[in-house]
Design a protein around this nucleic acid. Structure first.
Length: 298
DNA sequence: AAGACGAAAGTGGTTGA
DNA sequence: TCAACAACTTTCGTCTT
């Protein structure tokens, strides 16, 4: 998509269709001007942005820099070195662990192409987990994976456990276990993920058109209304809806193909598919497109 | 011959006593 | 803590296109 950030009007506009995507941009410009370093020091109110992806939220203090040394006498110099030693000692287990873990977190999150907001949230979750001592007895990596999984769910950009497992090299059930553990211990509430959130990703992996996508979201919505979706795995439902929608729009994919990208088996798709057909009378629509296809062939 | 279908047995996780 | 249970998987044989 070709976007145009109009900072004057505070809008984000699509260059192709002119659609205004966002009309409440924050103005990131300063409201004053500075002409030299002196004025800058006087006028700037903030430092670097605070971020949980930095192990100390970007707010850490170092004792002294080399430049300060020249103004000190011998006695003060010794004091200076002593203080700096202490500073380094204080940064003990927790901080070192955080540094390592957040590096790992960044790696996994960029592998999965997760948005910044999710990475940020996951870092926050991990930091909390460390502070509560929840990492003890668990591998750092698995907690990182669990935190990321939780963050994904919260931000409605679900990745499957399989994907997380592939990216982090941690076993699926291990991730699931720590995920459940830390969300329980930290009191993080997570709604069951919505099957519709998976559609966009699965559809593009299968090269399906936008119509098929919206059709399958439609199907999911009507299925949810009659409680067909509760208690079932969301990926299975998403896969089945996508499969049916593809049939209706004459873009048939095999059950095998859909099953692979969704990370479920053909059997699960069949089961959901059967339920969808019997409860939502979609058979008519499928027959319609079949007839159309035959006419075109003839 | 490939894909769809369905039965049966197995797995990991939740729930309720 | 254990057993019952539901969802999902694996496997395999049969039917359909």
């Amino acid at each position: 998509m070709n976007l145009w950030f109009n900072t004057e009007k505070g809008e984000v506009i699509c260059r192709e269709c002119g659609l205004v995507i966002e009309d409440k941009l924050v103005d990131f410009d300063q409201e004053w001007r500075e002409f030299d370093a002196e004025a800058a020091a006087r006028k700037r109110r903030t430092g670097a942005p605070m971020s949980y992806t930095q192990f100390d939220q970007g707010l850490g203090t170092d004792v002294g820099r080399k430049g300060d040394l020249y103004s000190l006498g011998v006695k003060d110099k010794n004091k200076f070195f002593r203080l700096r030693k202490w500073q380094q000692r204080i940064s003990t287990a927790i901080e070192r662990n955080l540094k390592l873990a957040l590096a790992e977190l960044k790696r996994v999150s960029s592998y999965l192409k997760l948005p910044r907001s999710v990475e940020e949230e996951a870092s926050r979750v991990y930091t909390l987990a460390v502070q509560k001592g929840l990492v003890r007895g668990r591998s750092m990596e698995s907690v990182v994976a669990g935190a990321l999984y939780a963050a994904c769910r919260r931000h409605d950009v679900p990745r499957t456990l399989d994907e997380l497992s592939e990216a982090s090299g941690i076993e699926k059930k291990e991730i699931g276990r720590t995920y459940r553990f830390i969300t329980r211990e930290l009191g993080i509430k997570i709604l069951p993920s919505n099957p519709a959130d998976y559609i966009a990703r699965f559809a593009s992996a299968l090269n399906l058109t936008a119509e098929t996508q919206s059709k399958s979201v439609e199907i999911i919505e009507s299925a949810q209304e009659i409680e067909l979706t509760s208690g079932r795995g969301p990926t299975g439902i998403a896969a089945a809806a996508l499969y049916v929608a593809a049939l209706i729009n004459n873009e048939k994919r095999t059950q095998r193909e859909v099953a692979d990208v969704a990370g479920v088996t053909e059997v699960t798709i069949r089961n959901r598919y059967k339920e969808l057909l019997s409860e939502l009378d979609l058979e008519k629509e499928i027959k319609k497109t079949k007839k159309k296809a035959e006419k075109i062939a003839a």
